[in-house]
């Protein structure tokens, strides 16, 4: 059974300059014990989805569709019920670990806070639980009495993970959890997340712009562009034989050391992500696409079958309806 199920999610921010559609019809599914990687450029709407799952978006934001987390219809919950669901059904690990902590409160108190707020146990048990959590994320229990400034960046991110685990949620949303970290520490934190996810059988929604990180962590990948999912499938398959030209460009940005094809030839994607208020007609990616056809500016691709357990929104994939002038 899926822990998180998102159906036809649409999110529109309300600004003084009018509505800004950030997410335009997204379906997602994360099963127990599964890691779904959600990748895309900044501004593609991936972090907005993270916010919507725990309803952390500005109040005025228009959200349509359906989000089901652990059997709760998130978008229909009353505020009281929502608070109960936050952190117990799903929790979140942010990018800026340094800013998400209270500098004048000890680590232990901060980990205990959600446990106490949700009344899951008393002070004493909460402290024991906090100690266990610290050990789970690879830090000694005595660190409970430290203040955030006494920790390094990597240690803070470990604490953030411990806080996310505090109420034993079914789903953890990790929004760029390693982006601000040093290489070696990033690898350590990724390793930790993977181990924890595996040992605790968690569902993990891992959001990042760095596709290479996802390949190491995720079971399945969903690639987002301009508020829509453009490709979905098994992580290895998507990374190694991408079906959508956008995924191809993203994957090509990560060289394999020793692969002479990358030597001296950095490749990337020209142009910029589209303005959410002026999304190109047809396939939103067509102005930047290397394999663009005349049909691309008029046909809006849907997620068509692109192989076994693979979907891609591109006119070139095998499951796409036959179009004039499009070769596969």
């Amino acid at each position: 059974m899926s822990v998180l199920s998102v159906r036809d999610l649409g999110i529109e921010y309300q600004t003084t300059g009018g509505g800004v559609p950030a997410v335009r019809g997204v379906d997602l599914e994360v099963d127990r014990g599964e890691v779904l990687g959600l990748a895309g450029e900044s501004g593609c709407g991936k972090s907005t989805i993270a916010g919507a799952i725990l309803r952390l978006l500005p109040v005025k934001t228009r959200i349509t569709g359906r989000i089901e987390l652990d059997g709760n219809d998130i978008l229909e919950l009353t505020p009281g019920k929502l608070r109960a669901v936050r952190w117990t059904a799903g929790s979140i690990v942010f990018q800026g670990a340094m800013h998400a902590m209270n500098p004048v409160q000890r680590i232990g108190e901060q980990i205990m806070e959600p446990i106490l707020v949700h009344g899951q146990s008393g002070e004493r048990e909460a402290r024991i639980r906090a100690g266990t959590l610290l050990e789970q994320v690879g830090l000694p229990t005595r660190r409970l009495d430290d203040y955030p400034h006494e920790l390094s960046g990597g240690q803070k991110q470990r604490i953030m993970i411990a806080m996310a685990l505090a109420c034993s949620p079914s789903l953890i949303v990790a929004d760029e959890p390693t982006t601000a970290l040093d290489v070696m520490v990033q690898a350590q934190v990724l390793q930790l997340l993977r181990t924890l996810q595996h040992d605790l059988g968690l569902a993990l929604l891992f959001i990042t712009h760095d596709l290479s990180v996802l390949v190491e962590v995720a079971d399945r990948l969903a690639i987002m562009y301009a508020g829509k999912i453009v490709e979905q499938g098994g992580a290895e398959a998507v990374f190694h034989s991408p079906a959508h030209p956008y995924t191809k460009a993203l994957a090509a940005a990560f060289p394999a050391i020793g692969d002479m094809r990358f030597r001296g030839r950095p490749s990337g994607l020209g142009g910029d992500p589209p303005d959410p208020q002026q999304i190109p007609s047809g396939c939103p990616f067509h102005p930047r696409c290397a394999e663009v056809t005349p049909a691309c500016s008029s046909v809006t691709p849907e997620l068509w079958t692109a192989g076994p357990a693979r979907l891609a929104a591109c006119v070139h994939v095998s499951g796409a309806p036959a179009l004039e002038g499009v070769s596969r």
Binding site: G270, G271, D272, P274, D275, Q278
Partner: peptide
Amino acid sequence: SEPPVLVGEP
């Protein structure tokens, strides 16, 4: 020698 870079809004 390369196509012009797209600007979000001309």
